[in-house]
């Protein structure tokens, strides 16, 4: 099947979404995946493509707070959605608590898989702030890593739990102190 350029132009859809807090509207090919839009149109290359068939999880981003495989999701499906990518977690070069935890635990080697694991961890800990090791392994089993044997990544999640819970204790203590 061949198309004339007019036909192709007619097949462009307009998509509005919020990416890492910035509202954006783009014209995209309806076949275009969310991953390709993030990487190629928005320059957010922190999201990686490992398989492009929904198994490796390297492309995981948050869509409305839920983890999603951006290689399988069409950009058009993200219309009206709030997207968070790995670039949206940190404040410039300052690591978020989960990124800091992965740093401390030396979780990764080549780190090609890291954006997916980190985004999955964000989703996991939002849902279950105190997971057991088994729950962590189960939850992360949708992400593949070929380098580490996973132990250091699991340790990274456990460290994140420690950091986040100590921050929670701190903030609730502060609240108490200020009489809230």
């Amino acid at each position: 099947m061949t198309h004339t350029s007019e036909e192709l132009a007619a097949m462009i859809v307009s998509v509005s979404m919020t990416v890492n807090g910035n509202a954006t509207t783009l014209d995209v090919d309806p076949r275009c995946s969310l991953a390709d839009t993030l990487r190629d149109s928005l320059g957010l290359t922190g999201t990686h493509l490992g398989c492009e068939h929904g198994v490796c999880g390297a492309c995981t981003v948050l869509v409305g707070g839920e983890p999603a495989r951006s290689c399988l999701m069409l950009t058009a499906q993200a219309d009206g959605c709030e997207i968070v990518t790995i670039e949206g977690l940190s404040d410039g070069d300052t690591r978020s608590p989960i990124q800091e935890a992965m740093y401390q635990a030396m979780s990764f080697q080549c780190a090609f898989c890291s954006p997916g694991f980190i985004m999955s961890t964000v989703a996991l800990l939002a849902e279950n702030p105190n997971p057991t090791e088994r729950e962590i392994r189960e939850e992360l089993s949708g992400n593949l890593c070929r380098c580490t044997g996973y132990q250091s990544i699991v340790a990274g999640v456990e460290t994140a739990v420690e950091i986040l819970s100590s921050q929670n204790i701190l903030s609730s203590q502060n609240k108490e102190r200020s009489g809230q």
Binding site: L44, G46, T47, I86, E87, L89, D93, Y103, S114, P115
Partner: peptide, 13 residues
Amino acid sequence: DDRFLVGEGRFVA
């Protein structure tokens, strides 16, 4: 990890 963990690794793609 300074670059990798914040999504600033630079791979060929």
